[in-house]
């Protein structure tokens, strides 16, 4: 479970998060929508332990200290080691996490995350952004984490791959994972998430259930908040 309670964070006097409270339960996918600078990445960085809040409390699975073993993270731009293949990158990051998988298992992770078999042995310097993103997803997926923090995970993915990602995240959630996804992509958030929060100037201005609204309705709610 992810819990942010009355979190404040400022950078050089500029408020990035203002009394933010979010709760994401196990098995839930929470979508965080917001414009650039709304505080989405700051929220993720606080959860990842790369930033400390000025005030408020943050806990993951009821623990205040970040436990990397239970977190899977997918950044907006997955920068892999260009001289390694997709398979080697996945193997390397898994080993860093103390996970030793057989080649067959690594292939399976990559395939499940949508990376074509013929690309597994190619160096990632030849990969498109979307292909790198898929390896990034596989790295997080292979950790079999309890909590997933995603920063624009579908960035650079084609519609098919985006759809496959949504399906993968739903599968993970149904297995009990807690997922927080920051994005600009209203449609993808609506399709993937159970609950959605709209951030503006570091404040959570709206929270709603995805099944309560259509994509179009969500877009107009979002734009309405952005214009006001």
């Amino acid at each position: 479970m992810i819990l942010l309670q009355n979190v404040h964070k400022s950078f050089k006097g500029q408020k990035a998060l203002d009394n933010l409270s979010i709760e994401v339960k196990a098995g839930e996918i929470y979508g965080l929508l917001g414009a650039n600078g709304a505080g989405k990445s700051t929220t993720l960085n606080l959860l990842l332990g790369f930033l400390k809040p000025d005030a408020g409390a943050i806990s993951i699975d009821s623990k205040n200290v970040v436990n990397c073993n239970m977190i899977g993270y997918i950044p907006e731009n997955v920068n892999l080691y260009p001289y390694l293949s997709g398979l080697e990158n996945l193997d390397y990051f898994c080993k860093l996490a103390g996970l030793k998988y057989s080649k067959t298992e690594l292939y399976r992770f990559l395939l499940e995350c949508g990376l074509q078999a013929e690309a597994h042995h190619q160096r990632t310097e030849t990969y498109s952004k979307g292909m790198r993103q898929k390896v990034g997803i596989a790295i997080a997926y292979a950790k079999k984490a309890k909590v997933y923090l995603l920063d624009e995970p579908a960035s650079g993915l084609d519609p098919l791959a985006s759809n496959e990602l949504s399906e993968l995240l739903k599968k993970l959630a149904s297995d009990g994972a807690t997922i927080l996804m920051a994005s600009h992509d209203i449609f993808r958030v609506r399709e993937t998430c159970n609950r959605i929060g709209i951030l503006k100037h570091g404040k959570l201005v709206k929270e709603l259930h995805a099944n309560e609204v259509s994509s179009n309705e969500l877009e107009s709610i979002y734009l309405n908040f952005m214009h006001n």
């Binding site: 990842l48 790369f50 990397c68 073993n69 977190i71 899977g72 993270y73 950044p75 731009n77 997955v78 920068n79 892999l80 080691y81 990051f93 898994c94 860093l96 996490a97 103390g98 990034g136 790295i139 950790k143």
Partner: peptide, 13 residues
């Protein structure tokens, strides 16, 4: 600068 550091750290190293 590439943001890979975050990925490395979140893997537990």
């Amino acid at each position: 600068d590439s943001g890979r550091l975050k990925l490395l750290l979140i893997q537990g190293t």
